[in-house]
Design a protein around this nucleic acid. Structure first.
Lengths: 369, 369
DNA sequence: CTATTATGTTAGGCAGCCTAACAAAATTTT
DNA sequence: AAAATTTTGTTAGGCTGCCTAACATAATAG
């Protein structure tokens, strides 16, 4: 009941009753109980076509708010929101230099942003219930081997406020969550999100739940066996060096014909030129799209998600979609392909969703006792 | 309650109560209801260390029995069992010739075996509740596109008894189910089963549930992108031609040194010679183990199951385990490796499990109404 | 102003499960 | 052999969560 209120945001009682399949008297009692606990409050009325106005409810003050932070390699994005995901405050900080790995630079910037957000805090927001952080690192749960991942580096310079639950998740997984809750995959409970950019990664959503895996390594396609052919030995992590934007641009520069002028200096420029019809650029983009298609095909052969959403600096460009689709379907089984719709905000929206869901679980867990 | 009785087999009331967390009065009422409906019956008593004897119950006559059939490419295996998986009858038929695809030969043999089993039928078995068939083919549910798979071929010569539910599942998925319910993966709710033999395939179990995928293609690793390297184009289905026993033996024959005598004529012989210390044989086995390790690594990078069980003619040999383990862990993330423990019976045991589970669901669904 | 429709409340009841107490049947102790 | 202890099973009574039915309230339509 409270969970539904948090997921749907402002809702009338009849709406909640319809979804939950509960009768009006039961709804009445439940709402009264939630209001008593400060977990729901009436925020208005809604007039239907006919009949009496329905009261509209939202999570109450005691439901509080969360900090959602995308600790990215170039930007720190922070959103403060209620448990029903109304934005209260947001801030973005551009890191002085781009970080390949999660380390002290990022940790320090997160600490600064959190401190700044705490200053802005308003009593009308209710209590701070959780801080969610999306990391460019593998993330394992408390039962996993945290020492094996880089995740603890987020705390090297960042000392979170005492007694505030922390929710950590891999940034690609967060983007997948966001595409599910706010983005292009809203209508699918099962899909894969494939990110191709500076780094590569995948997030797998099955029946509305993230697949994390035993070591938090589900979707870590940077460790697919590659190269893989008769007589060659795969090299750990090699596929990321092959598919990443850096390697792509090196190949482009090396093979760029003198007659075509100066080669594009970054992936965005390459994409722009290809979109404008530059044949040389287009050839390279096409070839990369084929490689992405091969990765998608491997994904389909293994988890058969039915839908693959492409994101990341290279992946999010609609230009590559037809080729990726064609190659994936030729190599493997039928799969729909879509381009990510959330852009830069995907990750922070995803961790926001995870953090609010965590808070709802905590509140319900306590309420049960 | 009835589900637990079917899953556990003979159980006392206190045992059921403990698992379900229900009180003795509730248990009493439930058992009485089940006995009334013929779904439970007392089959004995169990004396503990102290105190009164406990009554032991089993699914009753009305729970009936199932046919479980492994429609394999060389053998048809049939098991008749109760819903709590007590074997009532079993038969095995060796096909006159080995079938690469599911077709009329297999369908006809299944029809014959089912007819023969029906003759043996005993009123004490209760009603026939379902026929489960494991197929060497992709299988999709009723909402999927059945025309795209070969699964309907099983009915080309086999006309199942009217009104008996049919449960179809891919044979590799069945083997995975069996390793989970009866085999080496009993203690894991999440794992992958990788079969390497004449063909290759994978079954993925997540939280005790089979991952099937949108097209029933989850785990169809025969369509992993391969070869996959800079400058080569993957070929659909090629990895099965490379990893399968036939291709392996061709490579072995081609590269077999004259000085080492005649090459082994089949995979079993190769394995036997390697186990005996034949260096040439061992080299080939090692190289194949490395390739299997690469596939396992790709699997771990994608779903990170924590445990991979190796099965199939080549995979089930413990000889390859260390190399597969070493390669998989080097290329990817920590994963435990085990050798299948069920051998030839894995598939039929798996479809038996699925068929009985289906029957339990049907009975409970009806009972609810 | 009345009829219709949707929302919200009150009253009463049923299903599922619980605890407490008792009865029954085994073992161990006296 | 009788009494005490332990475990299983039954009976009685009660709580919780939810339901339906009926009524009260508040909006629109005619």
């Amino acid at each position: 009941m409270f969970r539904l209120l948090a997921e749907r945001g402002a809702s009338t009682r009849p709406q909640l009753g319809e979804v939950l399949g509960l009768s009006r008297p039961t709804l009445s009692a439940a709402i009264a109980e939630l209001e008593e606990a400060g977990l729901a409050s009436k925020v208005g009325e809604l007039q239907g076509a006919l009949g009496r106005k329905a009261a509209v409810y939202r999570p109450g003050l005691n439901a509080g708010h969360v900090f959602a932070i995308d600790a990215g390699s170039t930007h720190i994005r922070l959103r403060v929101s209620t448990t029903d995901r109304r934005l209260l405050h947001s801030r973005t900080y551009r890191l002085p230099s781009s970080q390949f790995f999660l380390g002290e630079e990022i940790s320090r910037a997160v600490a600064d942003e959190v401190a700044a957000a705490l200053v802005e805090s308003d009593p009308a927001w209710g209590p701070l219930q959780a801080i969610g952080i999306a990391l460019p690192s593998r993330v394992v749960g408390p039962q996993g081997d945290t020492a094996a991942t880089r995740q603890e580096a987020i705390f090297s310079c960042f000392d979170p406020p005492a007694d505030i639950p922390i929710v950590l998740e891999n940034n690609v997984n967060c983007a997948a969550v966001a595409e599910h809750s706010n983005g292009i995959a809203r209508d699918h409970e099962t899909f894969a999100y494939v990110q191709i950019g500076f780094k590569i990664g995948m997030g797998i959503m099955l029946d509305g739940k993230l697949l994390r895996g035993r070591n938090g390594a589900a979707g870590e396609i940077s460790h697919l066996a590659f190269p893989m052919a008769n007589g060659v030995r795969p090299v750990p992590g090699e596929i990321e060096h092959y598919m990443g934007a850096e390697a792509l641009m090196q190949r482009v520069a090396r093979e760029w014909p003198q007659s075509a002028g100066a080669p594009p200096e970054d992936a965005a420029t390459l994409m722009k030129r290809a979109a404008e019809g530059d044949v040389t650029a287009l050839t390279h983009v096409e070839r990369h799209a084929e490689d992405i298609g091969a990765i998608v095909a491997s994904c389909v052969s293994m988890v058969d998600p039915g839908l693959v959403v492409l994101g990341g600096g290279l992946g999010a460009n609609p230009l590559i979609l037809p080729t990726v689709h064609e190659v994936a379907n030729r190599l493997s089984y039928p799969v729909e392909l879509r381009t990510s719709s959330l852009g830069q905000d995907a990750t922070v929206l995803g961790i926001e969703k995870l953090a609010t869901a965590h808070v709802v679980n905590l509140i319900l867990g306590e309420a049960k006792i």
